[in-house]
């Protein structure tokens, strides 16, 4: 029976491909008559034959695929540059819409005198990787939330007796002056108390340094570990606190250096390559690989400024340090120029 089956298969192939003699043809005709199943099988075979009229070998398909994949990766380049620019007006509007809507809702309920609502209504603004979000709080304070950072506040209590907001990551605040309602930024390490001022706070989870830079006005700093000790900071001061060592340093800096990120600009002074790539990784959601690892110790003398363009930054690195780059997917490989 099995032998017979194979014989029929060969016979069908012979006939369809035009290699049969009249005897073969007669034999198949007889076989087809036996059942409609047989008939269908022959019909299906013909269809397969006819519709397989053109052949693309696997090799060709795979080479087309790798060609395409290559140009795809090239465009990824361009893609990475665009991630930042995507924050266009509409996006900004969308980002602003939520807090503004909530603020509006808050005011409406305030006017209605329906404020005795004690349940916390937490509002969160998060900047996705590669974006800087700006939002306006109910009191008119402007906040720029840096990439990958989050601010949270309780809409039911914010601006009632005080203005409290918690921060994870980095944000720049331009606080509307209101002496009666102190503005507080809480981070896991320290709380920043202000009245009306502009300042930057950096407290990324997983990093040991807490940092704040004051652009104008004045702020009081209160650390969790030593709540008694309140530090007052003058404009232009930068406070860095290391959680591990407990080291606290206060120094005068150019505040613009530390607040430039909100305009999509990065300024570095006497930074190492490691500092630079940590920042670039954060902004673009990419990964750097150094070959060898020691390249990271390279120090850039003077100022390294950069604006919105990853390739430009990489080219600048290449020019000043002789470290070449290679981009693959979302990974950037750095190596010494040959």
């Amino acid at each position: 029976m099995k032998q017979n089956r194979k014989h029929i298969d060969s016979l069908i192939a012979k006939i369809i491909s035009g290699n049969a003699n009249s005897e073969d043809i007669r034999e198949l005709e007889e076989w087809e008559k036996v059942s409609s199943k047989n008939e269908k099988l022959v019909k299906k075979s013909r269809k397969v034959w006819e519709n397989g009229y053109l052949h693309l070998p696997e090799k060709v398909i795979q080479s087309d695929k790798s060609d395409l994949s290559q140009s795809f990766n090239q465009h990824l380049f361009d893609q990475i540059q665009r991630i930042k620019r995507k924050t266009n007006l509409y996006k900004l509007a969308a980002i602003l819409a939520f807090p503004i809507a909530l603020a509006l809702g808050f005011y409406i309920s305030y006017v209605a005198g329906n404020l005795e609502n004690n349940t916390a209504q937490l509002t969160q603004v998060t900047s996705p990787k590669g974006h800087v979000s700006k939002c306006v709080l109910p009191d008119g304070t402007h906040v720029w939330v840096n990439t990958g950072s989050t601010i949270t506040y309780d809409i039911s209590r914010f601006n009632k007796n005080s203005r409290e907001i918690s921060l994870e990551g980095e944000a720049y605040f331009e606080v509307t002056s209101d002496i009666d309602k102190p503005f507080k930024v809480t981070t896991p390490v320290a709380t920043v108390n202000v009245t009306g001022t502009a300042f930057n706070v950096m407290a990324y989870p997983g990093e040991n340094n807490f940092e704040t830079v004051l652009a104008e006005g004045s702020i009081f700093l209160q650390f969790k570990q030593d709540a008694e000790n309140i530090i007052t900071i003058k404009p232009g001061d930068r406070v860095v606190y290391n959680q591990l060592t407990g080291n606290l340093t206060v120094g005068e800096v150019d505040a613009a250096m530390f607040t430039s990120w909100r305009n999509g600009e990065l300024l570095f002074k006497d930074a190492t390559l490691n500092d630079l790539i940590t920042e670039l990784e954060r902004i673009y959601d990419i990964k750097f690989h150094l070959q060898p690892q020691e390249l990271g110790d390279f120090r850039f003398r003077g100022m390294f400024s950069y604006n919105n363009n990853l390739i430009e930054a990489l080219e600048k690195i290449k020019r000043t340090s002789g470290i070449d780059y290679y981009i693959e997917n979302k990974e950037v490989k750095l190596h010494k120029m040959k």
């Binding site: 194979k6 014989h7 298969d9 060969s10 192939a13 491909s17 290699n19 299906k44």
Partner: peptide, 21 residues
């Protein structure tokens, strides 16, 4: 050649799902 052609055509037939048929 006859045998292999028979096998080839059978395999091609089998690979078409009923749905496609």
């Amino acid at each position: 050649v006859e045998m292999q052609m028979g096998i080839a055509l059978k395999k091609l037939r089998d690979s078409l799902s009923d749905y496609l048929m």
